[in-house]
Write a protein that binds this DNA or RNA. Structure first.
Lengths: 153, 153
DNA sequence: TAATATCCGACTAATTTAGTCGTATTTTAG
DNA sequence: CTAAAATACGACTAAATTAGTCGGATATTA
């Protein structure tokens, strides 16, 4: 899975709306400025999410967008699957966008890709807006330290 | 991470060469036929891997390619990093292709992406040709069954 | 009624992907 | 000696994807 700008920007905006949940609409201009996103591009993204029922809008002078679902009900998996289509690193291990392959019956590296897909979708589907909002930002060193997983995983 | 055709085809060819390790060169024609890969495209890929020292070639009438390293010494991580550049789903959580982002200091969903990158690179770097060669193919149901990870992972 | 929103659809530049193609060179079988 | 079959090298390209821009219509409120 590669995260597109669209997914990235959608998540930024949704988290801001999560922070303001219950406080009335937030304008695209503010969402764009706060999150460093091109405004007219974000506009498209917000309208898209409105069609999906994730956000609702108020038109006019003091309009804007707000979450149409509780932050517990929207997950990163939903967002990325919508904007990027697929979480799996290759279509032959995708359950939502499965495509067969001539080598399927004897391909041996597919197992590794399947495990990566399983882990990715598990994490993404567990990551509700509410949980992500509560999380602490990543320190830069964490990206460069060699994080070690528990044994046997 | 999304697996490109190039990485896919490279892995297919490398595994075939792994099966034939120590038995002399295998021609591109045979590698292409066995693995259902466009021959002239595979040609490029093999020459690329030759430059990297992963395979060696024998020119002429009965020439072909063979592994230039033991199957224990080549990993999926190396292959995918070479052909696709990066394993991480976004540059801000890549240790090899890190790029900063204006939101870095307060981005909250980055943690999820970092965990996915950590798991991906761990699995990819552990997956030597030798290990992958020994693995069993994936049954189709495994792709559609909801695999459940052990708790707390 | 002017300002500031959302709403809608079309358009596009740049990049990436997944190749093809021509041709030169090397090696061996007959 | 020569034809066949292989690698070697570099240029080219069609199609898809990405990451937007742009013009203008409609809605709401101070």
């Amino acid at each position: 899975m590669k995260l597109s700008r669209k997914s990235d920007y959608a998540l930024r905006a949704l988290l801001t709306l999560g922070d303001r949940y219950g406080e009335g609409p937030v304008s695209i201009r503010e969402l764009a400025e706060k999150n460093d996103v091109p405004q007219r591009f974000l506009e498209q993204i917000m309208l898209d999410m409105k069609k999906l029922g994730w956000v609702s809008s108020v038109a006019g002078r003091i309009g804007g967008f707000q979450l149409a679902k509780r932050p517990e009900e929207i997950t990163m998996g939903q967002v990325v699957r919508h904007f990027d289509g697929v979480l799996a690193p290759i279509a032959c291990v995708s359950s939502t966008h499965y495509e067969s392959c001539s080598q399927e019956s004897h391909c041996r590296f597919r197992r590794v890709l399947l495990e990566i897909r399983n882990y990715t979708s598990k994490l993404m589907d567990q990551a509700t807006l509410a949980k992500v909002m509560r999380g602490a930002p990543v320190a830069r060193e964490e990206v460069f330290s060699n994080f070690v997983f528990a044994d046997g995983i």
